[in-house]
Structures are given as C-alpha cells and as structure tokens.
Nucleic acid binder design. Sequence first.
DNA 1: CGGAATCCTTCACGATACTG
DNA 2: CAGTATCGTGAAGGATTCCG
Lengths: 132, 132
Amino acid sequence: MVSLVTRGEPHSFAECNQAAVPVADILSRIGGKWMIYVIMALTRGPMRFSDLRRQVDGISQKMLTQTLRDLEEDGLVTRKVTPIIPPRVDYELTEIGMELRGPLAAIAEWTERNGDAIAASRARYAAERGAA
Amino acid sequence: MVSLVTRGEPHSFAECNQAAVPVADILSRIGGKWMIYVIMALTRGPMRFSDLRRQVDGISQKMLTQTLRDLEEDGLVTRKVTPIIPPRVDYELTEIGMELRGPLAAIAEWTERNGDAIAASRARYAAERGAA
DNA sequence: CGGAATCCTTCACGATACTG
DNA sequence: CAGTATCGTGAAGGATTCCG
C-alpha cells in the first residue's frame, strides 16, 4: 500500500490499485449519494427498511434498496428477513461496518473543521474564474 | 453534526447536511475516480502538471486538469504558474490538503485490513444473487 | 411491507483535436 | 508544456408503476 502520509521513495500508483480491494473502489462507494447517511442511520442499531427510509430524508425506495445491496455485498450490513405478512426485513451493521465509522468520522471532523475555509475558497474561486 | 460513532438521541439527517459544507459533498469529491491518486502523488511534495500525469497512471489530461481544478476550488492545492516558454505550472497541497491525508489514510488502512473479507463477501454475494 | 421493473435525465469520464 | 473545446458513452440517480 502506498502511504498517504509519509514522503519516501516514489511508489507505483498501480501498486496501491492492485490490492484485493482497491482503496478507490471503497471511496467510490462511500462517495455515493446515500451511503454515508444509511451507515449513519444504522449506527443507532438495527433498523427496518421502512424505518431507514424515514430516517434518511429524501432517499427513494430504489436508491435505499440499491445502497443496502451494495453494503450487503461488501459485508458491511446483514439482511435478516422475517417471513411474516406483511414482510419484515431488518438491516444491521456488521463488525467491519462498525469499524468503518471511525474513518468516516475522521472525514466528517475534517470537513467540519475546515468547512468555512472550503466555502471561502469556493467563493473566491467562483469570483475569479466564474467572472472570466 | 450527527455523530457516526455514538448511539444517542436520533438526529435529523438534515442537521448534518446543512453545514457550511456537507460531509457528503466532500465524500463525493473524494469518491471521484482520480482525486485520491492525485492527492497521493502530491504527498511527495510539489509537482508539475506533466509529472503528475506521469505519476497517476492512466489519467487523461482532461481529468487531471479537472481534478486539480476541483482541488484548487476547495483550497486543497495551490496552483503556481511560472510564465516561461514552455509554461511551467506547479501544484502543491495546502495545509488543509495535507490534513486530509490522515482521514484518507484511515480509510486506506480500513480497506487494507478488511480487503480479504470484502472480496470474500462479494464472491459469496455473486454466487448467491448472481446465480439466481 | 419490501421490494422489482421500467423509463428518463443528468453527469462523470474517456477520446480526440486544437492552442498560446 | 499545459492547457481548452467538443463529442460520445455508460453509469448514477429520480419518478413511476407493479408485485408477493
């Protein structure tokens, strides 16, 4: 893995990209529109589909399903079906899903800490480049 | 800011989304195809455009330009033009750009630690759902 | 209730050509 | 060298409808 922190010998970009699962692969999933909100909601504990849909404001049924499928595929959530009528399906964060919350919180804290600077930078950029 | 870690009172999803810069906004940028590789390359220090293009294998000129513009817009990199012929443009991580490396490294470490489990989960998922 | 299926729009990204 | 401009494609996401 290429370090993001240290400055050492030049590493091959491909070296990092050839792991079992590339970091960029995970980032692209996390970077999806709803992933973080679903994980946030599940942080409070197991939750039913309809509860999740209420918690994550604005998400469509399709996108909630798809996001949960992606999370399930990667082993970040479990899906437990209770075959009653009407059906009941509960989703819960797995152990590695729980462990992802730390890194995500680190991003969130960075964003919160630098939000004003970023907004200012964007405004300045828009004023300079947007005017031209 | 809604905590990603603690389990407390239910927070409004919108509460987290109404910061100066939403976390999902940053995540979507980080989740772009090239952002992390460009940041990784710049971790080694300031770099010229053409050097960056060589370091980040497979990136097109267009995407490198666009990624650098996005980073510049958010104040994560500086762009220094030396008006000579041929032109010389150097890019360098800013302070907050440097500070983002930590959170990114946390994601990278999580990915490395759980890569095998994720790959296994994906294979199992494909075998079950893919066959059906 | 918890989906699946379909259609549609927008956008990210790639390829190519041209320029100061 | 370091871009900008243009075009084309696939994927992401939204709205709607139907189902066990």
